[in-house]
Design a protein around this nucleic acid. Structure first.
Lengths: 225, 225
DNA sequence: ACCTGAACACCGTTCAAGT
DNA sequence: ACCTGAACACCGTTCAAGT
């Protein structure tokens, strides 16, 4: 206590010089946490912690957790729409874009889940919607059909990504779906028992489903009204 | 205070005589809470409270919150499969069953959300899968196609129900999606602006999507392998 | 205007202690 | 075997107080 060392000034910067708080810094830190820890990482307290402050401080820039989630989601899908690459016909390009969207949702744990709890009305989600509409209209689809088609396509991609993420999670901790189906009584559930291989098989499913959807959309008459 | 009433024995049963704890009682209480309060109501502490006990007591019957959620979900969809009603051709019956499934998911707030965070491998979910497989095979679909088709159909119904529920929630508190789309810059998002009516319109969408899916499934060749 | 610590009202889960 | 209260480690959100 009485030594000279006591008077030494201790730098307050243990780390890179604390960046000033801002909406961008908050969203970046949050996306970082989501990437590393999944949905449980996306909490106001943890984001605040990563920014060396308290949770209360975030409320200056963000109304609540829901708004932060929406911002993080839209930020995470920023790279899906790339205006350059235009190879192949509209159908090929449509499937490519949806494929990139799918990969993006799967690239970070919990992101697909986030997509299912957030209305996709951020600028990047809207750019994606706009691009998809453009491709469908280029394909000759009627306007009212195209509108519903975009919703159907995006809903499928999102839900499929979320389901895959869920399966991954639960099957890491246990051996759920496979095990359940293998142990099923063949007399109670004959079809499931007979088709369990197909029901569980993964690869090719996404492409196949997109083809089913596109075939149905092109073949089927537009809705009345 | 000094009167005879003080000595009166007060019944400990303010309510119907506390039912003994059991898995069934827990799931019933939980479903009740979900019905009245939505997902926020489905907590171990609230379920325990409804049963006049502490949260720790539930762990004798249920491994964790996730298992309770799975049990509640399967219990909630118990009435979807009714073996009696068999009117119309397979396609009509298929659409009816999926319609009942959809209504069931929408009947309780948060139930569709629950469906998206729970692998549907309970007995009632399996019965539904089995019935759908049966109808598709009756329709002449190839076995491997039928397996993937059931997943696609159920995934769509679940995701659509979840999206509707979400929209309902967020639009009660704010005026989100409509407002956002009306205020959009027509030059940045010309298609969305032009089609905003169709993008938002609700009724008929579910039937239309099912027809699109079925058309695509019947028209499209089964996957390789 | 921005930041903060403390408080409030919640969570799921574990555990030692009771019956 | 079943139940319990208390504790632990978390949440989102609010608010009075500081700068």
């Amino acid at each position: 206590m009485g030594t000279k060392e006591t008077r030494e000034i201790v730098s307050r910067r243990a780390r890179p010089a604390k960046a000033p708080l801002s909406k961008d810094a908050i969203v970046s830190a949050a996306l970082d946490l989501l990437t590393r820890e999944g949905l449980p990482g996306l909490s106001l307290r943890k984001v605040a912690g990563a920014l060396d402050t308290g949770a209360a401080s975030l409320y200056v820039y963000v109304a609540n957790l829901g708004e932060l989630q929406a911002l993080v989601f839209d930020h995470a899908i920023a790279d899906v729409v790339q205006p350059d690459r235009q190879t192949g016909d509209w159908r090929r390009r449509l499937k490519d874009v949806l494929g990139v969207y799918f990969s993006t949702l799967r690239a970070r744990p919990g992101l697909a889940q986030l997509a299912m709890t957030t209305l996709p009305v951020g600028p990047n989600a809207l750019r994606l919607t706009e691009l998809l509409l453009d491709l469908l209209l280029e394909g000759g689809m009627q306007e009212s059909t195209a509108a519903w088609a975009v919703d159907l396509l995006m809903l499928y991609v999102t839900a499929f990504a979320a389901e895959q993420g869920l399966r991954e999670n639960l099957e890491t901790s246990l051996g759920r779906a496979d095990r359940v189906m293998r142990e099923l009584s063949p007399s109670d559930y004959p079809h499931i028992h007979a088709l369990r291989e197909s029901l569980l098989s993964g690869p090719g499913r996404f492409e196949w489903a997109l083809d089913v959807l596109l075939t149905g959309l092109l073949e089927h008459a537009p809705p009345p009204g």
